Computed example of a mutant assay.
Amino acid sequence: MNKNEPHTSAIVLAAFGTTYDSAVESLLAIKRSVEKAYPNTPVRYAFTSNIIRKKWHKRQSDQQYQQDHPEIPASFYQVKNVLGTLADLQNEGYNQIVVQTTLLSHGEEFIDLKAYVDALNSIETIKPEWKPFKQIALGRPLMGTWGKQYSYSEDIEKLATSLVDDVEQAKAQHSALVYMGHGNDHLSTGLYYELEEQLNQLYPDLQIYVGLVEGHPNFAALLQKLKNDRIQTVMIKPLMVVAGDHANNDMAGDEDDSWKVMLSQNGIAVTPILEGLGSNDKIQQLYLQHLRDAAKDANITLK
């Protein structure tokens, strides 16, 4: 292809999104790592949450907010869902797209995302050249997916390995390490049990626990483990791409139902760390590898 011809490939980063300006950097860090790897391929964010998109759209007319937060990219104020973002790219002439999710697991959101991609790939036109997309590939979540091609257990092991800096930080504080994940109430969250087991096998000199906002292991199960192990001090971090609403309120908030408060009421000293996984350069590289895998499998060239 002549370098002056328009590139037909593009990348969409599909995230749930966040309304917390302090959490945006985690998303931008992932985008920068992708842009560094593929400097000649457009990379755009899509937010799957309707509520979050509407909040950013409202901020589009808030000049004071924009002045106070110059770190927010202009594109966030007009951010679209995955279908809208793909439609924009198609209208601009891009017909080979890699959609890389920033989700953690193959849960309900990823299933919906996969349904969108599969539906668009299935479109057939009378004349093949008028198909809206030549190919759309979907990169697997951080904790992997089922199937023979990519072992989800290896993805979990790589995730655990990438959390080494958290482990060292907890050791320095002489604390156990607790992760708060999101989870869900609709599908199995057994992956988180496996992650906890993998973490404790990989770092046997530190006690590490994983609990979820939704699904299992829930807070009650987590608290019981901490009591059984006679844990008195913990460092708690979000097992989420961004340190947004759940991290700031459910994990580290001052309300009676926050994990910080409930753990403190049970005699456990708590140090919250408000940092999303997206800020971890090792995690960024895992997402990038999943994107590479998806592009390679679909024979999509990214430059």
Score class of each variant (00 low, 15 high):
residue 2 N to I: 09
residue 4 N to E: 14
residue 5 E to M: 14
residue 7 H to C: 15
residue 8 T to M: 14
residue 9 S to V: 03
residue 10 A to D: 04
residue 11 I to V: 09
residue 15 A to N: 13
residue 15 A to D: 13
residue 16 F to V: 06
residue 19 T to R: 12
residue 20 Y to H: 15
residue 23 A to Y: 03
residue 27 L to A: 07
residue 30 I to Y: 03
residue 30 I to N: 05
residue 30 I to P: 01
residue 31 K to D: 10
residue 33 S to Q: 13
residue 36 K to T: 08
residue 36 K to A: 12
residue 40 N to R: 13
residue 41 T to I: 07
residue 44 R to W: 06
residue 45 Y to F: 15
residue 47 F to D: 03
residue 50 N to S: 13
residue 52 I to D: 04
residue 56 W to K: 12
residue 56 W to N: 09
residue 57 H to K: 11
residue 58 K to G: 15
residue 61 S to G: 08
residue 62 D to Q: 11
residue 65 Y to Q: 07
residue 69 H to R: 02
residue 70 P to A: 11
residue 71 E to V: 09
residue 72 I to P: 11
residue 73 P to A: 10
residue 74 A to D: 15
residue 77 Y to Q: 07
residue 81 N to W: 00
residue 82 V to E: 05
residue 84 G to E: 10
residue 85 T to R: 06
residue 85 T to E: 11
residue 86 L to E: 03
residue 88 D to T: 14
residue 88 D to P: 12
residue 89 L to W: 01
residue 92 E to C: 11
residue 93 G to S: 03
residue 93 G to M: 10
residue 100 Q to K: 04
residue 101 T to N: 02
residue 106 H to G: 06
residue 107 G to R: 08
residue 112 D to G: 08
residue 117 V to S: 08
residue 119 A to T: 09
residue 121 N to Q: 00
residue 124 E to Q: 14
residue 125 T to D: 06
residue 125 T to P: 02
residue 127 K to C: 10
residue 131 K to S: 10
residue 131 K to G: 03
residue 134 K to W: 02
residue 134 K to D: 02
residue 136 I to Q: 04
residue 138 L to A: 00
residue 140 R to M: 01
residue 141 P to D: 03
residue 145 T to E: 14
residue 145 T to V: 13
residue 148 K to N: 13
residue 149 Q to M: 12
residue 151 S to R: 10
residue 151 S to P: 08
residue 152 Y to R: 15
residue 157 E to P: 02
residue 157 E to H: 09
residue 158 K to A: 14
residue 162 S to Q: 10
residue 167 V to Y: 00
residue 169 Q to F: 13
residue 169 Q to H: 15
residue 171 K to T: 09
residue 172 A to P: 04
residue 179 Y to C: 04
residue 181 G to R: 01
residue 186 H to P: 00
residue 186 H to W: 11
residue 186 H to Q: 13
residue 190 G to F: 05
residue 191 L to V: 15
residue 192 Y to M: 08
residue 194 E to K: 14
residue 195 L to H: 04
residue 196 E to I: 05
residue 196 E to G: 05
residue 203 Y to T: 07
residue 206 L to D: 02
residue 213 V to D: 09
residue 213 V to N: 03
residue 218 N to Q: 09
residue 219 F to K: 08
residue 220 A to I: 10
residue 227 K to N: 07
residue 227 K to W: 05
residue 228 N to H: 09
residue 229 D to K: 10
residue 230 R to G: 06
residue 232 Q to G: 10
residue 235 M to L: 11
residue 236 I to A: 08
residue 236 I to Q: 01
residue 240 M to H: 07
residue 241 V to H: 06
residue 241 V to G: 07
residue 244 G to K: 02
residue 247 A to R: 11
residue 250 D to N: 10
residue 254 D to Y: 05
residue 257 D to A: 09
residue 258 S to D: 12
residue 258 S to K: 01
residue 260 K to D: 02
residue 261 V to P: 09
residue 271 T to M: 06
residue 275 E to M: 13
residue 276 G to F: 11
residue 279 S to D: 07
residue 280 N to E: 05
residue 280 N to V: 01
residue 287 Y to G: 10
residue 287 Y to V: 01
residue 290 H to I: 01
residue 294 A to E: 01
residue 294 A to P: 01
residue 295 A to G: 08
residue 297 D to Y: 04
residue 301 T to P: 02
residue 302 L to E: 02
residue 302 L to M: 03
